[in-house]
Design a protein around this nucleic acid. Structure first.
Lengths: 217, 217, 217, 217
DNA sequence: AATGAATGAGGTTTCATTCAT
DNA sequence: GATGAATGAAACCTCATTCAT
């Protein structure tokens, strides 16, 4: 898809003189694939260069450093996923349906890229990369979305930051879904719909009891 | 704690001639700390030796190999945590209270070792280590506990293996709690009790709707 | 010789930026010398790098691995020697003269590289290297040549493989000559010609009795 | 055999307090086995100690060093083989029969210990060990025997040293037989007798032309 | 815009060898 | 006479990164 189109575009230029902008996108895409296939430590800049069909200095010129590239790739993934979630959720009328739609979108996102992406998503929740802190930040992207979702439903659309309880709740939902998605990798016989249905039934009752929760500390 | 006592014990021996048994414990403890601080790849056997105040061959004699040590450390952690959870849960009368007690025990376990352990626990869910499979196995320890808990409550104490739905559910609960524990690291102002209370209120309603869930696919 | 020319060529490049092709040859030549001086286990990649005036990664880039390099060096030596033997033998009319010419060529080959090569040749017949099987294979190169020589003389140019007796005979001749060459290292006062003459007189009578031998089992 | 008897003798002593003399023999025997199984570099003092059932300092006390032990083992092997050869040769009346008997004895020696000893014998002719020079010396043991054999037959029993030509001849014979013995390892279908017969027929004609040879330089 | 060549630093692991008891 | 504990040194190999062209 994106990758193939890119490969074509790149190949269209003679003598390997490819415009910087194109190469910049290429390094992100190929880097993503590589990190996903091999994990952060397993991926090597040598191989990235080979796959891109360029020399290493070019890679470094575009990516800055391995760590930097990893962060950029993460950001890209985060945004892509966020877009999907937002699109999925926005049209639904009530909280339960939003939750269901969000979970389903997430699972489908994972499913579409099963072989590859699962590993990357799991990387989000661990210190597999250069530094947990950077990753935690990335992960917050998803959480914030969920938090927004919850808050909205309460009419409490505080722009700045959500209350701790809402954040914790969002973390819980997020963790639950991610964990199940990871487990799903080894249980492909179950459909995304069934899983989303189950998770929704499991998570939404507690979510609806939210008023009580907010009256806590 | 354990570590300090060990350090003392070790220091008590003259000329660095420490009994094998003690060193064996030391390598596990210091290895655990190191893996946690730096992650599997970030940790180096060189540093482990330096921290233990011995030369590398001693480390290798006791630990076998880096990978082997990692697995041993993981097993240790898993057992320790499992013990805590079982002890906490067993005395409680009903599911909601069991859930609450389990979550609290988990959070306390994390809290006691805050700086260190959180990272390790998170490592359980990612391909940060030598082989995801080994880790997945370890992690299953926790999940199985939760699954047992759920199953019991249904009188469905199938010895062989839990149903996929129960497993998925256990994964969800586990993921939710772990994720919140991770987030908690940056929100020390919240008490373990408050967090456990919140999580219980959030998770138990869905859990009580279990009958409906089991009638799914 | 080759080595000196290579050293000059290498030194001719500024800033140590030597073309890959040249370095490839260099690693083979210097590797050969090193293996010969120290034996397989005694030789270290560190020293090879030092002698080449490069860092270790360069060596590994070109040589692949120590074992791989050893095999490549062996192949090189084998081919070189085979060429010499073939050239020497081909023009001679009868078996005795072929034998004499072959022995002389072998001894001269050894003599030219006395200090270094003798050891390497001896290495061919021992489990000094990574795996005897590889070496046995290499050594067979020489033996096959001798076997061919013998077979031809009988009009028995079986393409597929020589009979066991012929093979054993070839081994014997080969072993005799190698062994004497090794001994020769400590007796430089004897000329190659004298030695070849002696060996020929010693070996050719038995060889001429070949018909009887072949009628054995 | 020797080894088993030794093991019993050793086991007969309580508390592991075994007399020095016994242990001294044990280290030679077990060392021989180990070197033969693994080669010089493959053998480790750690394993030697384990096999002997003692701690490493004991091994070092008895063996001096790995290199020293290797030499001592070699000397032992050399003497054993020499005894066999002498016994075999002494009773035979003429040169051809002596040659045949010697070759046969050598091959049988190899055959009896096939799995183990072949490797060691091959080690004799290569720089697999600590230093070729030491080994060359050892190897000379065999050669001297052959040289003696040849000289005797000429009535020329010069005690001091044999002439260079005789020595070279002995080397050739020795090399031929060793080389064939090595090759024999992969051709067990051939009997020792057949091989000895063939080698004798091959080598003896040249040997009988000795007078001419001696009139050379 | 791009590259071939090179490197420093570090990784895991093994071994022969020796204290101190 | 014997040992458990320890070590220094070195081995092979890989990687992210950068000159000089």
């Amino acid at each position: 898809m994106t990758e193939n189109k890119l490969t074509e575009e790149v190949a269209a230029h003679a003598h390997g003189r490819v415009p910087r902008e194109l190469r910049r996108r290429q390094v992100l895409v190929e880097g993503r694939v590589l990190f996903v296939e091999r994990g952060y430590h397993g991926a090597s800049m040598d191989e990235l260069a080979r796959r891109m069909g360029v020399s290493k200095p070019v890679v470094y010129d575009l990516a800055g450093s391995k760590e930097r590239l990893f962060r950029d790739v993460m950001a890209m993934v985060g945004e892509e996923l966020a877009q999907r979630l937002i699109s999925a959720v926005v049209a639904e009328p009530d909280l339960t349906r939003k939750l269901h739609a969000g979970i389903l979108a997430f699972l489908r996102f994972v499913d579409e890229n099963r072989a590859q992406w699962t590993a990357l998503l799991s990387a989000l929740s661990a210190n597999a990369g250069p530094s947990s802190d950077e990753l935690t930040t990335l992960r917050r992207g998803q959480v914030i979305l969920v938090a927004k979702l919850i808050s909205e439903m309460e009419g409490d659309v505080g722009t700045s930051g959500s209350s701790p309880v809402v954040e914790a709740l969002a973390q819980a939902i997020n963790g639950a879904v991610e964990s199940v998605a990871l487990w799903w990798r080894d249980h492909p016989e179950i459909s995304a719909e069934a899983l989303a249905e189950m998770l929704t039934r499991f998570l939404s009752p507690g979510l609806l009891a939210l008023e009580d929760l907010r009256s806590l500390p």
